[in-house]
C-alpha cells in the first residue's frame, strides 16, 4: 500500500515540478510568467485556496465530530 501511494504521488507530482505552466505559448511566455509569478503570487494562491481550506477543515471537523464533542463535554464537566 505504501509503495502504491508513493507511485501515485510520484506520477501526479513530478509532472507539476518539471513542467512549465505556460510552455505552450512561446510568444507570450515571458509576459504570462511575469503576471503569474509576481509579488501577488502568494496572495492569489491563498485566495484561490481559501474556500477549499475552509471546506476541508469542515470535513475533518465532521469526521472527528464525536471525539471533539466528547472533549468539549469533558471540559464542561
Amino acid at each position: 500500500m505504501k509503495r502504491f501511494r508513493k507511485f501515485v504521488a510520484t506520477v501526479f507530482v513530478l509532472p507539476l515540478i518539471f513542467s512549465s505552466a505556460v510552455s505552450a505559448c512561446p510568444l507570450c511566455r515571458a509576459q504570462v510568467e511575469s503576471e503569474i509569478y509576481n509579488r501577488n503570487f502568494l496572495n492569489n494562491f491563498f485566495i484561490m485556496l481559501l474556500p477549499i481550506i475552509i471546506i476541508t477543515a469542515i470535513g475533518f471537523g465532521l469526521y472527528h465530530a464525536d471525539k471533539i464533542s466528547e472533549r468539549l463535554k469533558g471540559r464542561i464537566k
Binding site: G59, L62, A65, D66
Partner: peptide, 15 residues
C-alpha cells in the same frame, strides 16, 4: 453508531 465519518466523506467529495 456514528454517521459523522460518512457525512464527512460525502461533504468533502460533494464539495
Amino acid at each position: 453508531m456514528t454517521r459523522s465519518p460518512l457525512i464527512a466523506a460525502g461533504v468533502l467529495m460533494g464539495a
